[in-house]
């Protein structure tokens, strides 16, 4: 979507893109791949464990190894790496890159080059620090995204419950996910309806006012829906403590995968030390 497109078109486009992306995620979880076949509890524990390991490694080679492992896992799980992970990597590179940018210039250490024009020194320690920041962010986000792209959200929730996350937290996550789609659709329809009745372009001030008014209308609808949902829950016996189903068979390959994740984390942390 062009940056110069009218505000309403941009907002509608963003909302529809978010819905499309969610549908892509749903479709990817149904593909027959390595991670899709594992017990969700193993995936939740293993992938989040690796994401935490990423933040603790102190060698760039270990970090690169973990990143490579994440990409191999994505390929083994039949994920379209460029389409599913490319936008994630680019977004993180931009944000973490912006944060890491001053590090090569401000960190004291061995000077390896000078910035053209200004002549400011670039240090090896600073480059290493920036590489760690960007590498850790990219790799940890990749492991977390692998979990989301290969596991139906309901299974992620049940796995969280199985691993001891309180039932109320899990129920809130579940409903939030459920109703995000409803409100994304509602918001997209509201913008489309407004566009269908508009002639000409909005000024930036009018655009902002419209966005605020739409957000207010959506909030009102969200509160009303929330009340209705609560009544629907009470109607079926809810009394403040939701009870959920959870049934995951754990097979030998799940234990093998968990052991593999543990070994990889140990190798990254302590290998070559």
């Amino acid at each position: 979507m062009s940056r110069r497109a009218p505000l309403l078109e941009r907002m509608t486009g963003h909302l529809l893109h978010a819905l499309d992306h969610a549908r892509l995620s749903d479709d990817l979880t149904a593909r027959g791949g390595f991670l899709q076949a594992l017990d969700p509890r193993v995936k939740l524990g293993g992938l989040l464990g690796l994401a935490v390991t990423v933040t603790a490694v102190h060698r760039l080679t270990a970090l690169a190894g973990l990143f490579l492992a994440a990409v191999l896992l994505a390929l083994a799980s039949r994920l379209p790496v460029g389409r599913a992970l490319g936008p994630l990597w680019l977004g993180i590179l931009i944000f973490s890159g912006a944060i890491a940018l001053p590090a090569p210039l401000l960190t004291p250490g061995d000077v390896v080059a000078h910035l053209p024009l200004t002549g400011w020194p670039i240090t090896a320690q600073g480059l290493r620090s920036a590489a760690f920041l960007i590498g850790r962010a990219e790799t940890a986000a990749t492991f977390t995204t692998l979990l989301i792209l290969t596991t139906p959200w309901p299974h992620v929730l049940k796995a969280m419950r199985a691993l001891g996350v309180p039932v109320v937290v899990v129920a809130i996550f579940g409903m939030t996910h459920r109703y995000i789609f409803l409100f994304l659709q509602a918001a997209a329809q509201m913008f489309e309806a407004r566009r269908s009745r508009m002639v000409g372009r909005l000024t930036p001030r009018e655009g902002r006012r419209l966005a605020v008014a739409t957000a207010g209308a959506l909030l009102g609808r969200a509160i009303e829906t929330g009340n209705e949902v609560h009544l629907a829950m009470i109607s079926r016996g809810y009394r403040g403590e939701p009870r959920l189903m959870q049934d995951f068979p754990t097979r030998p390959r799940d234990w093998a995968a968990l052991a593999g994740a543990g070994s990889l984390a140990a190798l990254a942390l302590f290998g070559g030390a």
């Binding site: 139906p152 959200w153 309901p154 929730l157 579940g174 409903m175 996910h177 459920r178 109703y179 409803l182 829906t225 209705e228 949902v229 009544l231 629907a232 829950m233 109607s235 079926r236 016996g237 809810y238 009394r239 939701p242 009870r243 959920l244 189903m245």
Partner: peptide, 30 residues
Amino acid sequence: RRRVGLVFQNPDVQLFNPTVLDEVAFGPLQ
């Protein structure tokens, strides 16, 4: 709640669980 059941006009407010199975199981579990 066991003896009286209400089907709401808007199914979107009544279907708050992550899957169809969870939805149908919600009442019996409560």
